[in-house]
Amino acid sequence: MYRTKFFDHLILLSGVFIMVGPLLVALMTSSHEAADIHRNGLSILPGGHFIETYETVLTREGGFTGKITGLRMMMNSLILGLGFAAGKILLSMLAAYALVYFRFRFATVTFWMIFTTLLLPLEVRILPSYEVMNSLHLTNTYTGLIVPLLASATGTFYFRQFFKSIPDELLEAARIDGAGPFKFFVDVIVPLSKTMMAAIFIIMFVYGWNQYLWPTLMTTDEGFFTLVRGIKQILLVWVGSNIPDYNEAFALAILAMLPPVMIVMIFQRWFIKGLTESDK
C-alpha cells in the first residue's frame, strides 16, 4: 500500500490554502468596520463586528428606493435558482422523454438542433430574448426572469442519454401492465431518474443562482434584485462621498455563496450517484 508522505500533505495543504484562503479572508474581513478595511486592507483575523455586519446586510433597507434588504435579495436569488433548476428539469425531462420514447418525424434532426444550441451561450440570444419578454410586458416579473432561460440543451442531452440507458423491456413490461405514456413517465421514468434529477438540480441551481447579466437586464425594479447583483450595488451606490461598505460587500458575498454550497453538500451523494451510476 502507498504510504502518504510529508510532501503529499504539503501539496494537499497548499491546495486547501489556495482554495479556502480567499474565502476565509472574505469572511474575516466582513467582520471589520468599513473604515478599518479602508485603512488596513484585507484581514485574516476576525474583527469584532461580525453579527452587526450580517444583521445590517440582511435587514437594512437600502438601494435607491430604500426598500430592498439582503433577505429580500436572498429570497429573489432562491426563487430564481429554484425556479430555474426545477423548470429546467421538468422541461428537459419532457423533451428527452419525447425524443427517446416517441417515434415522430425528424426526431433526430430535432435532437441535433437542440444539441447545437449547447454551443450558443445565453449572451448570444440575450437581446432577442429581452425583446420578446419586453413586448410581453414580462420585465420585472419572476416569470420574465425565469421562463426564457428554461430551455436547456444540457439537461435535455443528459436526460436523453439516461433514458436511452433504461432497458426497452421496462417500457414493454409497463405496456403489458397497462401503463400508458403518462403513467409510464410518472410511475417508472421519474422514480428511476431521481439521482439524475438531483445531479441536474445542483448544476442548474448554482447556474441560476449565479446569473448576473440576465437579471440585470430583465429587472430594473429593486424589489427583484438578486444577491449577486446586490454585491455590486453596495460597492457602486456609496462611491463618492462615502467609503464603500467593504464589509457589507464581503458579507453579501459570503451569504451569496452559502446556499449553493449547502445544496451541493446536501445533494452530493445523489449527485455523484447520478453522474456515475449505471446499474439500472
Binding site: P167, E169, L170, A179, D187, K194
Partner: peptide
C-alpha cells in the same frame, strides 16, 4: 389491440422488473 388489452403476460429475458418498486 393494445398489449395490455390482449390478456397476455410476458416474462422477459432480463426480467424487466421495475427497479424502484
Amino acid at each position: 389491440v393494445e398489449p395490455a388489452e390482449r390478456d397476455i403476460a410476458m416474462v422477459f429475458q432480463n426480467y424487466a422488473l421495475y427497479p424502484h418498486m
